[in-house]
Design a protein around this nucleic acid. Structure first.
Lengths: 367, 367
DNA sequence: CCTTCTCCCGGCAACGTTTCCGTAATTAAT
DNA sequence: ATTAATTACGGAAACGTTGCCGGGAGAAGG
């Protein structure tokens, strides 16, 4: 069927272009010639478009041609160049996940949920850790308008009123899904937990456990969860007729050494708090260290409650009472919503999903 | 300077093509027209190649032309399409990190190190979690020959003798750097810790603490660290004249329920172990739960030592003695080596980096 | 005045796909 | 038998870049 002479010529031509490419690409190396549609087409004596359509199982191609093409493609381990397709189709099958921190079990589990469902749907996941640095977040987000990612799942480190970089992203047609640390005024999906109620219930629980001087350590006064949780804390105190004392509202500076002295000073003052409600698990751990250092009896002298997804909370001494968020499910839901926005924009209606956290009583609150 | 009529015409033409593109791309939406080199060129009455060169600060372009171009690019928030460049240049400025698990502080810190240094060097990071599934790892790795990533940093879940998928990757010219769970026979950088010595010293330490019936729980008998650590464990027993009992070598089935009963049965048999040396922190946590459930006194009846990077090890009850690996530094080193291989292939010599873990004595071993 | 050189810029091909279109050959409908 | 429809394939443009050329204008040197 295939004429001999042209094949020989093809072989020579291919060899030449092969070695040229090799030099151009790597200088030296054992890497074989890249195999692409053109290569498959020439080996099969078909056109590039026919091969392309055959591989995509197009109805325009006969059954046995498809088989020939697919067999050869499998044999040669053909892998389509994703960037060529992306360039043509304006979609990369890639999403970005942007988180403030990774040494935090909440984000770990969320990332796991994100990654798992994204991969199940055929998406690749680029990960960006902002290290609580708003400038870095802006920088990263601004560069996402270039088509590298089809959509973004983000938990903010920027203040709630400083999100024009995300507005810009949205205007450029890149869907954004927020989770946990969210923004307002966006026509996009926002996935949170019931922060206000959790903080309210947590604070009230501390009161019920006998605390009257309850401090709160928040991660920031400029992000959504910081505000919501603070408000829940305040309202619970008010409802119990307990004065809200500003000096007992500790605000993290995102520097663990600073935070440690902040908490330490608060706990060592005269008439010190008898209850502490922390918003992130690292602050709870810092508190453990402080209590050990200064021999503060927990839960005797100080009761501690923290938002946390630590797998070791029940093994600590004393075991840590926690408000635990459904982190994994949040990650899953975020990606599901994002992919819906990407693939069925008509059926996508941005929604505010609000999931419930669960309060787990343990020894640190005198259980 | 610029003639008025042509500009007006351009505007009309641009508007038309804009609305057309909008319909083609999204159907509907507030997204503006994408801005690319062609657009910049037409606005500036320059050629595409001139604009391209100006943006890359080429010496072929005059200073004021560069300024005009860059000013407009900044004003319009021009972002070069990364995939077009990747297609042209055969490099994506993207690396993949493949890890078996993410609910494991070792990998968390490693990922942090990887991500941080990769971004510092201008690389993007795709993350793949294999969930200890070799088939999934193979699937993922096989699809990495298509140019999506320039290189791969991997900690294996596949058995040490089943790595042809990685061979294939290397043959295709994609550099691979292994860390922690590594493979043999590859001409590439391998970053490990001194697993044999750590296991030897850890086991000897347990002996010194009075243990005579020491069990070892390994993550797998088919991966590098499993083998090395087991051998260190065995050697330490032999050197102390203690018999190595096969039934005390527990091998994880990568299913936490199964592992729990495995360890539970081992600890409940008559003449049970008085020491346990676990290779991953999850097994240590399982052991804590078992001890609590069955009221096994730790460290009285059972001493526990584990490889672990848990930030809460010192806060557990009892605090956990650990062998802690320099996870963050491993991640850093892995990426540094990979980028060296990518950018200075001439100066890159694959090496076997071996870092030291540190044994931290705490209460779980009777400190 | 002619040559040579430098400076600046534009044209064009190429990267690997996808997809719109055209068309030849075969089959079905009239 | 002529036309219409269908099947199966190829040609070519396009996606947004980069980089090799080539060339015109002006300056410098003879």
């Amino acid at each position: 069927m295939a004429p001999i002479v042209p094949d020989g010529l093809f072989a020579i031509i291919n060899f030449l272009s092969s070695s040229l490419k090799r030099i151009y690409k790597k200088g030296v190396g054992m890497n074989m010639e890249p195999i692409n549609l053109k290569k498959l087409a020439s080996l099969l004596h078909l056109s590039i478009s026919t091969v392309s359509k055959a591989l995509r199982d197009s109805h325009e191609i006969s059954a046995d041609t498809k088989k020939r093409v697919m067999d050869l493609a499998r044999e040669l381990n053909y892998e389509p160049n994703p960037y060529a397709g992306s360039l043509r189709k304006f979609k990369s099958k890639t999403i970005a996940v942007v988180v403030p921190d990774i040494i935090n079990n909440f984000f770990i589990f969320a990332i796991k949920g994100i990654q798992e469902t994204a991969h199940a749907k055929g998406y690749h996941v680029l990960i960006y850790i902002t290290n609580e640095n708003p400038e870095y977040e802006k920088d990263v987000v601004r560069h996402m308008t270039n088509g590298r990612v089809d959509g973004v799942v983000i938990s903010l480190t920027s203040p709630i009123d400083d999100t024009e970089h995300l507005m810009h992203l949205q205007e450029k047609g890149v869907p954004v899904v927020f989770f946990d640390r969210v923004a307002e005024g966006f026509d996009s999906t926002i996935i949170t937990t019931n922060n206000y109620e959790s903080a309210y219930n947590g604070t009230r629980y501390l009161i019920e456990q006998g605390c009257r001087r309850i401090a709160h350590c928040q991660v920031s006064d400029k992000i959504s969860i910081g505000i919501d949780r603070l408000n829940g804390y305040k309202k619970a105190l008010e409802d119990a007729g307990i004065e809200v004392r500003p000096e007992w509202i500790l605000t993290s500076k995102k520097d663990s050494a600073h935070d440690a002295t902040l908490i330490e000073n608060a706990l060592l003052q005269k008439n010190a708090p008898d209850g502490l409600f922390t918003s992130v698990e690292t602050h709870a751990l810092i508190t453990y260290d402080i209590c050990r250092k200064h021999k503060i009896d927990m839960p005797g002298k100080l009761k501690l409650l923290s938002f946390s997804n630590m797998p070791t909370a029940h093994l600590l001494k004393p075991s840590l009472s926690t408000i635990t968020q459904p982190a994994f499910e949040i990650g899953q839901a975020a990606v599901q919503q994002l992919i819906l926005a990407l693939e069925k924009p008509a059926r996508y209606i941005p929604e505010k999903v609000n999931m419930d956290s669960v309060l787990i009583e343990r020894e640190s609150t005198g259980k």
